[in-house]
Amino acid sequence: MIRLEAVCRTYRLGDQPVKALDRVDLDIDAGAYVSVMGPSGSGKSTLLNVIGLLDTPDSGRYQLEGREMTCLDEEARAAERNRRIGFVFQAYHLIDRLSARENIELPLVLAGMAPSERRPLVDDIVDRLGLTERAGHLPRQLSGGQRQRVAIARAVIRKPALLLADEPTGNLDSHSGAEVIELLEELNDQGITLLVVTHDPNIGRRAGRRLRMEDGRITADRSGTETGDALR
């Protein structure tokens, strides 16, 4: 489903070029549950952004669901993001003047869907994520856990094939964090491909496939059940 070949991405930090991705090769199957861990600045967020079409690689190839992504222009990338990819951010990124429901509806609005078509979709997802009572509230009236649920609802409303979560529990207490992770895993069970970037080893180890990044390279790629190594 995702195929990266020799993908490079270099940032300029002042005069210093920083290699965020250094010839990264990666294959991810549809429906996989992948965690990406590593120290700060190792390039995990950049990897997520490149896969999420928010960032473009300097060189290398990127295929999503068998389609070449590297040659798309910004308009086409925006359309792909809308249709195939859902994002969950550490800082939720909800629009504070819109109610929970309107935030969830936003991707459909941007896609130009008619209100009558939008309503049942939003009703359904609000119901599924247990947000019915909170749907009319503004983000500031919600708890952190509820906000992240709203953000997840927004990420999956378009039924994307790929869900990208960048530190989804970073701003949450352990209890809410666990709930959010369970929700993401539940969605993964229903078939969505899930990619989680995290600092938290307890979360990272739950994934079926665990990547470790350092200096822009993937240094470890483990699948299957947990072994003693990953705990260290």
Binding site: A78, A79, I95, L106, L110
Partner: peptide
């Protein structure tokens, strides 16, 4: 600015 970033992530094109 953040909202613009978000809208773009959600699929808003530059034209939008």
């Amino acid at each position: 600015t953040r909202e613009i970033g978000l809208l773009k992530a959600l699929g808003a094109s530059a034209a939008t």
